[in-house]
Simulated assay, not measured.
Amino acid sequence: MRIFGFLLAAAFLASCGANGAPLRPNANVGVSVGNGGVNTNASVGATNGTVSVGVGF
């Protein structure tokens, strides 16, 4: 009985986000030229419409 309860709880937790918005990846690459020379930048991340996470280089 204890195992059945654990499996039921695990299935419930796994299905919580099943109908949520999928994560959309995004990326950006840039090059700029100025008095200091040539600079490059890049960023990668993901968003689901409400929350965005990203890392810039």
Rank of each mutant, 00 (worst) to 15 (best):
M1W: 04
M1A: 15
I3V: 14
I3H: 14
I3C: 12
I3E: 11
I3L: 13
I3G: 10
I3M: 15
F4Y: 10
F4M: 13
G5V: 04
G5A: 15
G5R: 08
F6R: 14
F6A: 13
L7P: 01
L7N: 11
L8A: 11
L8V: 06
A9N: 07
A9M: 05
A10R: 13
A10E: 06
A10T: 11
A10D: 01
A11I: 02
A11H: 07
F12N: 08
F12E: 10
F12R: 15
L13E: 04
L13N: 08
L13T: 10
A14K: 12
A14Y: 08
A14S: 15
A14E: 08
A14M: 14
S15P: 04
C16H: 13
C16P: 02
G17C: 09
G17E: 09
A18C: 10
A18H: 11
A18S: 15
A18Q: 13
N19Y: 08
N19L: 11
G20D: 11
G20T: 03
G20F: 03
A21W: 02
A21G: 09
P22T: 07
P22L: 07
P22S: 08
L23Q: 05
R24C: 05
R24F: 06
P25K: 03
P25H: 05
N26T: 07
N26H: 15
N26A: 13
N26E: 12
N26Y: 15
A27L: 06
A27N: 01
N28R: 09
N28W: 12
N28P: 02
N28M: 11
V29L: 09
V29K: 10
V29H: 05
V29W: 10
G30V: 10
G30T: 14
V31R: 13
V31T: 14
V31F: 05
S32P: 01
S32V: 10
V33E: 05
G34H: 08
N35C: 06
N35W: 07
N35E: 13
N35L: 14
G36L: 14
G36C: 10
G36S: 15
G37V: 11
G37N: 14
G37S: 10
G37Y: 07
V38L: 13
V38N: 04
V38T: 13
V38Y: 07
N39A: 15
N39H: 11
T40H: 09
T40L: 10
T40I: 13
T40C: 09
N41E: 09
S43E: 02
S43W: 01
V44T: 00
V44Y: 00
G45V: 00
G45E: 00
G45S: 01
A46I: 01
T47Y: 01
N48I: 00
N48C: 02
G49V: 00
T50H: 01
T50K: 04
T50E: 02
V51A: 03
V51H: 08
V51K: 04
S52N: 08
S52G: 09
S52Q: 04
V53P: 00
V53A: 08
V53L: 04
V53C: 01
G54L: 00
G54F: 05
V55Q: 04
V55T: 06
V55I: 06
V55D: 03
G56A: 04
F57G: 04
